[in-house]
Design a protein around this nucleic acid. Structure first.
Lengths: 80, 80
DNA sequence: ATGTGACTTATAGTCCGTA
DNA sequence: TTACGGACTATAAGTCACA
């Protein structure tokens, strides 16, 4: 009885993990540094770094600011 | 030159507004009171009430708790 | 069953550094 | 350019009394 999955089931990420991953991908895609993104969003450089490392529990208003700085809707930052 | 839209363009809601609206719909659909939802999510009744009234800037961890109490993914609470 | 203002405590978010 | 700390200050969390 093989229990090996044919393809890996995606590991369930926490909301923080999801946000961090999406943030990184979108930021890189736009060739922005953490600093540049932080500036666009009106946030501090070190805060963006913390969020990307899942070290901080960001608030909704700031999720919205990051989304807007990246040109996406807020919910897209939480999509798996 | 008619400028009347065939169907109304949806007014753009803030992230708080989106969350509040989705929260209300999902909560009602499950026939939960604010109190019951708060209990499921491990939050205080009045806190949920404030969020539904857009009076609070909720954090990601608590968005996740509410989503889980409602049986949906976090991003679904922010979908337009 | 819900809305709301006020209040304290916890932590989000800033700013200064070092590597 | 990013990671990570320490020491702040601003604001979210959490609770209550009362409409």
């Amino acid at each position: 009885m093989s229990s090996a999955p044919v393809s890996e089931p995606k590991k369930k990420l926490s909301a923080r993990g999801l946000l961090a991953a999406n943030l990184l991908v979108l930021r890189r895609r736009r060739e922005l540094s953490q600093e540049a993104l932080a500036f666009e969003a009106g946030l501090h450089r070190t805060f963006v770094a913390h969020v990307e490392r899942q070290a901080r529990n960001i608030s909704l208003d700031n999720i919205e600011r990051l989304a807007s700085a990246l040109g996406v809707e807020p919910f897209e930052l939480l999509k798996p």
